[in-house]
Structure formats: structure tokens, C-alpha cells
Design a protein around this nucleic acid. Structure first.
Lengths: 202, 202
DNA sequence: CAAATACTACACTGTTTAGTTTACTTTTCA
DNA sequence: TGAAAAGTAAACTAAACAGTGTAGTATTTG
């Protein structure tokens, strides 16, 4: 019973997949419902039977991509493990997230719209924000545990992620640079940890 | 003889100013030549007499904004001055640049287009790149001078800027957060210097 | 099997838009 | 001052596009 997909369900998925491609390539304004329907090999009318408007379809795509982040980048604080080891795991997880197709697609689709639509920016962040900010909690606990210098945990988390994204996110998104190799990723992670602990280790 | 602007020159400037606003608010696709002409208080035909197409007008705007960065963020290495002092100047200059209207406008206008137009990304970077990367030179000299640990100077510069932009650029661009106050700016600069030197000071 | 549901092609509306044409007025400058 | 250059309003073309209506075909399901 693996392919118990009714035709309607299959069409719906085809439309969502095609729409994701279309929006990714052309942005919201540039995307065309006709082109999108052809891409999905579906009648344009069917698209509108599933999604009443372009905007609603767009929001469904964003929602779908947000939802695909079940694997949170949460990190649990362990008082008995070395800080660098734990931080390194966080860095590697973050890099893996930045590299993942779904995350890159989400950003390619939403980020340019976010500049001109604060509501989209907010709702996306909110939808994502539930699980996103595990790191500042970890930092906070390590500070309270006396193993990191007391400071603003949110700011520190922002710095840590900034170190990583400066090499493994922004240049790829805007200058379509290639993603760092495994070796480069290791350098980025190692160095972020090194720098962070050089500054914050108690 | 201060207002020796011929009418044609004045119209041209009006058009450029209006176009900058229009593109900034609506992006390339969203901008309308009719709306833009009204904004400039100029006949649509006049717009086309000055700029043969929307695309050419757009590129003129980008060029104009790029050219307005005569004040490079260059930093000269001084062997006899403290590193933290010199770096702090660099950080403050960078933050001032990130805060400046022309830089923010440039980014608001170009960045979302860069995602879908590698050529624009490249040409803009190139146009800007001449003066942009003074920092890695400074770092390199300080490393050769034995005052910083030997490492990849470009990577280190990227880290330093990443620390700053994580707080004073990306959140403002995409989540339209307010720009840090003078006090916050000082924290950001101080902390970037602190963290950088904690990691790289020889 | 039959009724309901969904899909399809295609024509259509109404709007927006980049860019042009025209006939006329204003500014420039030799 | 008068011809050339530049500006103007307004109507226009041609294309694209979001979204709808229709009539007929395929699929689902009780």
C-alpha cells in the first residue's frame, strides 16, 4: 500500500513541487501561474482549484518548507563535557543546516521577498523561531555554570552564528559561491569554536 | 553660479532620484516606469529620452550608488600603534559604512536582484571590490610583523566583518530591525575587536 | 454502475506594463 | 531672435499576466 496516492493528492504535490521551483528561480513577482502549471503538467484551472491565488500558493510553499525543519539544531548543555566539543557539534549542525537543500530553497525563495514584506519576514521567522535559537540557551547555561564569562547570551550566539554564516551562508546566497568543501567546513567550525572560546571561556 | 544646472541636467537628476526611490521600494520587477515618471515630475517620454530602457536605468542607478563610495574603508597598518586601537577604527568605519544611506540603499536595491542575477552580483562586487577589502591587507601586514598569529588573512577578515554584520547589517536588511544605537555600536565594535584579538593576537 | 468529484483545454476578462508615436510647447544658445 | 534641442500630455501597441467560465472527459467511490 505504498502508492495509495489518489490522483488529486498527486496533482497537489506536483503543483507544490513546480511552484517551489518556479518561485525559487524567478521570485514571487517573476513567477507565472501559466508557466508553473505547465511545469507541473497540470491544467492551470487545477492549480486554482487547489490554491485560490498566487499569494496563497506562495504562503503554502513557505509553510511547507518551514515545516520540513523537524530536525531542530538544538543543543543540550552538558556540565561534564568539554565546551569545545559541545560547541563543535553545534557548529557542524549549523553548517549542515545551512547546506541542506530545504533550507537553501527556503532562503532563496523568501529572503528577497522579506526585504519588501516585513509581514512575511516576521511570520517566517516566527514559524522557524520555535526551534531556532537553542544556542543562546546553551550559552546561558554555560555562563551560569561558571564555565563561560558572564555576558549577553543572545549577542554571543549571534556572534557565533555570524562567524559561521560569513563563510558558509551569505556568500553562497548572494554571490552564488560554491558551498565550502568538507575540509573547509571543518576549518570554519573549528575556527568559530576557537574564536568564541578565546573570547568567552571563563 | 551655484545653480548652473541646465534643465536637461536637472531632469536627469530628478529621474535618477525618483528611480532610486522606486527601485528601493518595489524592486526591479515591481517598479513601474509610469509611477517613476510621475514621481520625478517628468513626462514618461523624457525618461525614455534619457534612458532607453528600464534595465539601463537600473544599471545607471547601481553604478551611481557604487560610485558614491569614494570614502573607502581602507585602514593603514601602523607598526607602532596598538592593534586594538587600529582594529577599533576599522570596526567603527565599517559600522559607519553599514549605517550610511547610500550603502543601505545600494543593498536594498541590488541584493534581492543578485540572488537571481549572478551577472549583477559579479559586476556590483567588482565595481565595489576595488577599495573594499582593505582589511585583509592590514591583517596580513600585522601577521608578517609577528603581532598576529599566522593564518589565512582573507578568512580572518571575513570573520571580523561577519562578527559586525551579524549585528549591524543582516538583521536590519531582512528583518527590518532598527540600526544599533551609538552605545550598541560601541559594544559591537569593542566585542569584535576583543574576540578577534583573543583568537589571533600572537 | 452511476453520481459526484476532479481534471483538462481553451477561450475570455480586465488590468498592468514597457515602450512608441504624435502633435505641441518650452528652453537653450549661436 | 529664431532654429535646434528637449520637454509635455495623451493616446496607443503589443504582450504578459492573474484569475474565471465553460463544456466536456477522466477518476473516485458509495
Amino acid at each position: 500500500m505504498e502508492k495509495a496516492l489518489t490522483l488529486t493528492e498527486k496533482k497537489r504535490l506536483d503543483i507544490l513541487a513546480a511552484a517551489q521551483e518556479e518561485f525559487k528561480e524567478k521570485g514571487f513577482l517573476g513567477a507565472s501561474m501559466d508557466s508553473l502549471a505547465k511545469r507541473a503538467e497540470v491544467s492551470k484551472r487545477t492549480v486554482y482549484n487547489h490554491f485560490p491565488s498566487k499569494e496563497i500558493l506562495f504562503h503554502n510553499i513557505v509553510k511547507q518548507l518551514c515545516d520540513s525543519f523537524s530536525q531542530a539544531v538544538n543543543i543540550e548543555y552538558h556540565a561534564d563535557k568539554p565546551l569545545d566539543e559541545q560547541l563543535h557539534v553545534a557548529a557542524v549542525n549549523e553548517i549542515r543546516l545551512l547546506e541542506s537543500d530545504c533550507f537553501r530553497n527556503l532562503n532563496r525563495i523568501t529572503i528577497s521577498e522579506c526585504i519588501r514584506s516585513p509581514e512575511l519576514a516576521l511570520s517566517t521567522l516566527e514559524h522557524l523561531g520555535q526551534q531556532k535559537d537553542g544556542l543562546h540557551v546553551w550559552i546561558n547555561e554555560a555562563m551560569n555554570d561558571g564555565r563561560l564569562k558572564k555576558a549577553d547570551a543572545n549577542f554571543a550566539a549571534q556572534q557565533f552564528l555570524g562567524l559561521i554564516k560569513a563563510s558558509a551562508f551569505w556568500p553562497q546566497l548572494f554571490m552564488n559561491q560554491v558551498f565550502p568543501t568538507a575540509e573547509q567546513q571543518k576549518t570554519i567550525a573549528d575556527d568559530a569554536v576557537l574564536m568564541f572560546l578565546a573570547r568567552y571561556r571563563a
